[in-house]
């Protein structure tokens, strides 16, 4: 929680850096780099997640992400997608830091290929090593409020629980847990994974999330660029609704027009 939801100025702050946009987007699964660049631009995101992989040594002239998504314009957030052990995740992020010089990273250690659920034991191990090594760790985690507090306690700079399995597009399946995590956290909480469409992003923000991270919901839409714009507006709308404070739910009707002066 960044504690500024009632002031006029509203910004997203993580690891001491300020951003205007509360939408963070992935750069995977697009048709080509041109579509990636256009979708990111339409989303208004300032932070983009990227993966670290072997270069294709036999075809070094292949286009590279950096040629299309300028690391000077966007904050690259290297991730550890595809890592199943703490050791692999730490190795990957050390290479990422060397490739780009960034210490703000997204840690995810997966436990299972079917669910892509995080392996919390390995995640905790990796987070401890990385934080000791000077990294600012935004951590992908399960929606367990106790684990979220533990990750915050060891020094993670943002807690990013899933709302549903990665790439499933099932929407916010766990609003109670997400709210419990937000209430207890003193660092930003972002829903990472599970968003399917714009209303899901708005719901996450209305719950009080500091931001939303998504990839497939945009990349797998029929028109990714249009969906990127929809997500930008949804995150903004959800944030404004959260700051505004929604009305109480009532069981019965309450007329909007005054009853006095009826003819």
């Amino acid at each position: 929680m960044d504690g500024n939801q009632n002031s006029g100025e509203d910004f997203f702050q993580v690891a001491g850096r300020r951003f205007q946009s509360r939408l963070l987007v992935g750069t995977g699964k697009y048709k080509d780099f041109r579509e990636t660049a256009l979708a990111i631009e339409a989303s208004g995101a300032e932070i983009v997640t990227v993966a670290v992989r072997r270069v294709n040594v036999s075809d070094p002239k292949q286009p590279m992400l950096m040629d299309f998504v300028d690391p000077k314009k966007y904050t690259y957030l290297p991730n550890t997608a595809g890592c199943y052990t703490a050791q692999d995740a730490v190795r990957t992020l050390r290479l990422a830091r060397e490739a780009g010089g960034w210490n703000l990273v997204k840690l995810e250690v997966l436990g299972d290929q079917k669910t892509l659920y995080p392996d919390i034991v390995e995640t905790l191990k990796a987070a401890e090593v990385l934080i000791k090594d000077g990294f600012e760790v935004m951590v992908y985690t399960s929606d367990d409020p106790i684990i979220a507090k533990t990750l915050e306690g060891i020094g993670c700079c943002a807690i990013m629980p899933l709302a549903a399995p990665i790439g499933s597009g099932l929407g916010i399946q766990n609003p109670v847990n997400i709210r419990l995590i937000i209430e207890a956290a003193k660092v930003p909480v972002l829903v990472d994974a599970g968003v399917g469409t714009a209303s899901d992003a708005a719901i996450a923000m209305e719950l009080g999330c500091d931001g939303v991270l998504m990839n497939t919901a945009i990349a797998a839409a029929k028109d990714p660029i249009l969906m990127a714009r929809a997500m930008k507006l949804a995150v903004e709308a959800g944030r404004l609704a959260y700051r505004a404070g929604r009305m109480q739910r009532k069981l019965y009707a309450d007329p909007s027009s005054p009853l006095g002066g009826l003819i």
Partner: peptide, 10 residues
């Protein structure tokens, strides 16, 4: 020797 770079990812 491993040579890596950034690619698109979520």
């Amino acid at each position: 020797i491993e040579i890596v770079h950034f690619i698109g990812g979520g």
